[in-house]
Nucleic acid binder design. Sequence first.
DNA 1: CCGAAATAGTTGTGATCGCAACCAATCTTC
DNA 2: GAAGATTGGTTGCGATCACAACTATTTCGG
Lengths: 148, 148
Amino acid sequence: MAGPRWLDPDEMKAWRLYITTSVDLMKALEDDVRPFGLTMGDYQLLAMISEAPDRRLRMCDLADQLRLSRSGLTRRMDGVLSNEWVARVQDQADRRVAYAELTTKGWNLLRKVAPIHLASVRRLMIDHLSRAEVKAVGSAFEKISKAL
Amino acid sequence: MAGPRWLDPDEMKAWRLYITTSVDLMKALEDDVRPFGLTMGDYQLLAMISEAPDRRLRMCDLADQLRLSRSGLTRRMDGVLSNEWVARVQDQADRRVAYAELTTKGWNLLRKVAPIHLASVRRLMIDHLSRAEVKAVGSAFEKISKAL
DNA sequence: CCGAAATAGTTGTGATCGCAACCAATCTTC
DNA sequence: GAAGATTGGTTGCGATCACAACTATTTCGG
C-alpha cells in the first residue's frame, strides 16, 4: 500500500461533513415540500420544466438535467401526470419525441411552493454561510462539476 | 407573495451547483467501488464499523451514523452478512442488542478498497479545490450541520 | 415485584430508480 | 430506397429503503 496521500484534517473534515450533512439536508428539504403533496423529485421536475421555453421540455433533456435514467423519468412522470401538474405532448414533427409540459395547475402549484422551498434553502443552508463561504462553495462545486 | 428574499446570483450558483454536482459526484464514487463488488452504502458501512472500538457497533448506532432507518440497516446487513464481511454478534448482557462486527475478510477487503476510494475522493473532489475552498467547504457544512 | 412504557431489531408493503430488453420512428449509407 | 444503425421512450425485473406493525427484551412507576 504505497497508496496515495491520506487526507489531512481539513480535507477530512470537509469531506465527511459534506457527505453526512448532505443526506440530512436533503431529508429536511423533503420534509418542507411534503405538506404540498410533493417530493423533492417532483419539485425539481416542475422547476426544471418551468424554466424552459414555453414551459415544456423533451423527456430526454429533462432526464439528463434531473440526472435520471430514461426509465426513471418515465416512472416519475406517472405521478405528476396523474396529478395533472404536467401534460404529455407528442411532437408532430418527430413522432418519437414527447414533451413534458407544465399545466396551469402545475404552474400555480409551483408558484405557491417555490417561495416556501426557497425559504427552506435559506433557512437550512444559505443563511448560515458568510458571503465568502457562499462564493467558495459555488466555486468549489463549479470546479468539481467541470472535472466530472 | 410578499415572500422571502430571492437568492442572489452567488447564492443561486452555490445552491444549484451543489445540488446537481452532488448527484454526479456520488455516481462517480459508486463507479469506483463497484469493481470490488461494493456499493457506496456497503463501503460506508464497513468504514464506519472499522473505526469503532473492537471494530463492532450496535445496529442502532450504526443506523444513526449511516442515516439509515432501522429497517434499512437490517436489509443492508443482508448483503454484507452473506458476503461474510460483517458478522452478527448478539449481546449477552442485553439480549435485545446485536452488534455488527467486521470480519477478517471484511477488514482485508476494506484495507484493499480504502486507498482506491480515497484516491477517488481526491481525484473527483479534493484535488480540484484550493486550501481556502477546502476550509470553506468544511466550515460551511459544519454550520449547516449544526443548524439541522 | 408487576404492569406499562421504552428500546432493539425484523418483516410486510409500497415507492423510487437503474439496467436490460424491447418497440417505434428517424437517419445513414450504399 | 431498403437494410442497418441511431435515437426516443416504455416495460419487466431486481435492488434499495422508509413507514407501520410486530416481537422480544429491558426499564420504570407505584
